[in-house]
Simulated assay, not measured.
Amino acid sequence: MIRTVRLDDVEELLRIYSYYVENTAITFEYDVPTVDEFRKRIETITEKYPYFVYEENGKIIGYAYANTFKDRAAYDWAVEMTIYMDKDSRHKGSGKKLYETLEKELKKQNITNLYACIGYPEVEDEYLTKNSVGYHEHLGYRFVGEFKKCGYKFNRWYNMVWMEKIIGEHKENAKPVLIFKEIEK
Results as ranks from 00 to 15, higher is better:
Met1Asn: 14
Met1Thr: 15
Met1Cys: 15
Thr4Lys: 08
Val5Thr: 12
Val5Cys: 05
Leu7Asp: 01
Leu7Ile: 07
Leu13Pro: 01
Leu14Gly: 12
Leu14Lys: 12
Tyr17Leu: 08
Tyr17Trp: 04
Tyr19Arg: 02
Tyr20Cys: 04
Glu22Lys: 15
Asn23Ile: 07
Ile26Leu: 11
Phe28Asn: 08
Glu29Ser: 13
Asp31Thr: 15
Val32Ser: 12
Thr34Lys: 10
Phe38Arg: 15
Arg39Thr: 15
Ile42Ser: 08
Ile42Gln: 11
Ile45Asp: 05
Lys48Gln: 11
Lys48Val: 10
Tyr49His: 09
Pro50Phe: 01
Tyr54Glu: 08
Tyr54Asp: 03
Tyr54Thr: 04
Ile61Glu: 01
Gly62Arg: 00
Tyr63Ile: 10
Ala64Trp: 03
Ala64Tyr: 03
Ala64Cys: 14
Thr68Trp: 03
Thr68Leu: 10
Lys70Trp: 11
Tyr75Leu: 04
Trp77Pro: 02
Val79Asp: 06
Met81Glu: 07
Thr82Gly: 06
Thr82Cys: 11
Ile83Thr: 03
Asp88Cys: 12
Asp88Ile: 04
Asp88Lys: 12
Lys92Leu: 14
Lys92Phe: 08
Gly93Ile: 05
Gly93Glu: 08
Ser94Tyr: 15
Gly95Gln: 08
Lys96Asp: 11
Lys97Trp: 06
Tyr99Met: 14
Leu102Val: 04
Leu102Ser: 01
Lys104Asp: 14
Glu105Lys: 13
Glu105Tyr: 12
Glu105Arg: 13
Leu106Pro: 06
Leu106Asn: 03
Leu106Gln: 01
Lys107Thr: 05
Lys108Gln: 14
Gln109His: 12
Gln109Leu: 12
Ile111Cys: 05
Ile111Arg: 02
Ile111Gln: 07
Leu114Gln: 01
Ala116Gln: 06
Ala116Asp: 05
Ala116Phe: 06
Ile118Glu: 00
Ile118Gln: 00
Ile118Ala: 01
Gly119Ala: 02
Pro121Leu: 01
Glu122Gly: 10
Glu124Ala: 01
Glu124Phe: 04
Asp125Cys: 02
Glu126Ile: 03
Glu126Val: 04
Tyr127Ala: 01
Leu128Glu: 00
Asn131Ile: 11
Ser132Cys: 12
Val133Tyr: 09
Val133Gly: 02
Glu137Asn: 14
Glu137Trp: 11
Gly140Pro: 09
Gly140Thr: 07
Gly140Lys: 05
Tyr141Pro: 01
Tyr141Asn: 00
Phe143Cys: 08
Phe143Tyr: 15
Val144Arg: 03
Gly145Lys: 10
Gly145Gln: 11
Gly145Arg: 05
Glu146Tyr: 01
Phe147Asp: 06
Lys148Arg: 15
Tyr152Ala: 06
Lys153Asn: 00
Lys153Asp: 00
Phe154Ser: 02
Phe154Lys: 02
Asn155Cys: 06
Asn155Asp: 12
Asn159Ala: 12
Met160Arg: 07
Glu164Gly: 06
Glu164Thr: 07
Lys165Ala: 09
Lys165Phe: 07
Ile166Asn: 13
Ile166Ala: 08
Ile167Asp: 00
Gly168Trp: 11
Gly168Val: 10
Gly168Tyr: 05
Glu169Pro: 05
Glu169Gly: 12
Glu169Leu: 12
His170Thr: 12
Asn173His: 14
Lys175Ser: 11
Pro176Ala: 09
Pro176Met: 09
Pro176Tyr: 07
Leu178Ile: 08
Leu178Pro: 01
Ile179Asn: 04
Ile179Ser: 04
Phe180Ser: 01
Lys181Glu: 13
Ile183Arg: 00
Glu184Tyr: 13
Lys185Cys: 03
